[in-house]
Simulated assay, not measured.
Amino acid sequence: MKRKGTRVEWWAELLDERQAVLTSVGSDTSPLVAQEPVALAPAPPLPEKAPEVAVAPGSPLVVEFEP
Results as ranks from 00 to 15, higher is better:
1 M>D: 10
2 K>H: 14
2 K>C: 12
2 K>V: 14
3 R>N: 05
3 R>D: 06
4 K>E: 08
6 T>N: 12
7 R>T: 13
7 R>A: 09
7 R>I: 04
8 V>A: 08
8 V>W: 10
9 E>I: 05
9 E>R: 13
9 E>L: 11
9 E>W: 07
9 E>M: 10
10 W>F: 14
10 W>S: 11
12 A>H: 04
12 A>E: 03
12 A>I: 12
13 E>Y: 02
13 E>H: 07
14 L>V: 13
14 L>Q: 04
15 L>I: 05
15 L>Y: 08
18 R>F: 09
19 Q>P: 00
19 Q>R: 09
21 V>R: 09
21 V>P: 01
22 L>S: 03
22 L>Y: 02
22 L>T: 06
23 T>H: 08
24 S>D: 06
25 V>I: 15
25 V>E: 13
25 V>N: 10
25 V>D: 05
26 G>H: 01
27 S>L: 03
28 D>V: 12
28 D>M: 11
28 D>F: 09
29 T>F: 06
30 S>Y: 09
30 S>R: 14
30 S>H: 15
31 P>C: 04
32 L>P: 02
32 L>N: 12
32 L>W: 08
32 L>Q: 15
34 A>C: 14
34 A>E: 12
35 Q>W: 05
36 E>N: 09
36 E>G: 08
37 P>F: 12
37 P>C: 03
38 V>P: 03
38 V>S: 11
39 A>Q: 15
40 L>T: 14
41 A>H: 09
42 P>S: 07
42 P>K: 03
43 A>W: 10
44 P>D: 07
44 P>Q: 15
45 P>M: 00
45 P>N: 03
45 P>C: 02
45 P>Q: 00
46 L>I: 04
46 L>S: 12
46 L>C: 05
46 L>N: 07
47 P>C: 03
47 P>H: 00
47 P>Q: 01
47 P>F: 00
47 P>M: 01
48 E>V: 11
49 K>Q: 11
50 A>F: 06
51 P>M: 03
51 P>W: 01
51 P>I: 03
51 P>R: 08
53 V>P: 00
53 V>T: 14
54 A>H: 07
54 A>Q: 13
54 A>M: 09
55 V>I: 15
56 A>M: 06
56 A>Q: 14
56 A>R: 14
56 A>I: 02
57 P>Y: 07
57 P>V: 02
58 G>R: 02
58 G>S: 02
59 S>K: 01
60 P>V: 01
60 P>L: 01
61 L>K: 07
61 L>G: 01
61 L>M: 13
62 V>D: 10
62 V>Y: 04
63 V>K: 09
63 V>H: 02
63 V>N: 07
63 V>S: 05
64 E>P: 00
65 F>P: 02
66 E>G: 12
66 E>A: 12
66 E>H: 12
66 E>V: 08
67 P>I: 08
67 P>A: 14
67 P>N: 08
